[in-house]
Computed example of a mutant assay.
Amino acid sequence: MHTRPADPGATPHILQVGQDRRGRWMVQENHGLIEGVFISRDAALHFARLERHAFPGATVELVSAPLTSTLAA
């Protein structure tokens, strides 16, 4: 998992939950402020919902397009 301080002037935050091309479940914040890889869809959704507190007004969205890790290949 990777986190960086939020930019207060940024557009609304979205915590995207989906799979990468290898089938791993991921959570990514749309500004690149957070990313994590999880063992299941439920674990990823649970993490995303818990992390909403760090991003006021953030939404959690389940995405169908493959996510691409910015941290690992």
Rank of each mutant, 00 (worst) to 15 (best):
M1G: 10
H2F: 14
H2E: 12
H2S: 11
T3E: 07
T3P: 03
D7Q: 08
P8F: 04
P8K: 05
P8G: 05
G9F: 11
G9E: 15
G9V: 06
T11S: 13
T11F: 15
H13D: 11
I14D: 02
I14F: 01
I14A: 06
L15K: 04
L15S: 00
L15V: 06
Q16G: 00
V17T: 04
V17R: 01
V17E: 07
G18K: 04
Q19L: 01
Q19F: 02
Q19A: 01
D20F: 00
R21C: 08
R21A: 15
R22M: 07
R22D: 14
R24W: 09
W25R: 00
W25E: 00
M26R: 11
M26T: 06
V27N: 00
Q28T: 07
E29R: 04
E29C: 00
H31F: 09
H31V: 05
H31A: 10
H31K: 11
G32P: 02
L33T: 15
I34M: 14
I34D: 02
I34G: 06
I34N: 03
E35N: 09
V37L: 08
V37R: 12
V37C: 09
I39H: 12
S40R: 05
S40P: 00
R41K: 15
R41G: 02
R41A: 08
R41C: 11
D42K: 12
D42N: 10
A43W: 06
A44H: 01
L45S: 03
L45N: 09
L45F: 08
H46C: 13
F47L: 12
A48G: 02
R49D: 06
R49T: 11
R49Y: 05
L50T: 14
E51T: 10
E51S: 15
E51H: 14
E51F: 12
R52V: 12
R52G: 00
H53I: 15
A54C: 07
A54T: 04
P56D: 07
A58V: 10
A58N: 02
A58I: 06
A58P: 04
T59N: 05
T59D: 04
T59W: 04
V60D: 01
E61L: 12
E61Q: 14
E61F: 06
E61P: 03
E61I: 07
E61Y: 04
E61K: 13
L62A: 05
V63C: 04
A65L: 15
A65W: 14
L67I: 05
L67P: 00
A72L: 11
A72H: 09
A73Q: 12
A73V: 12
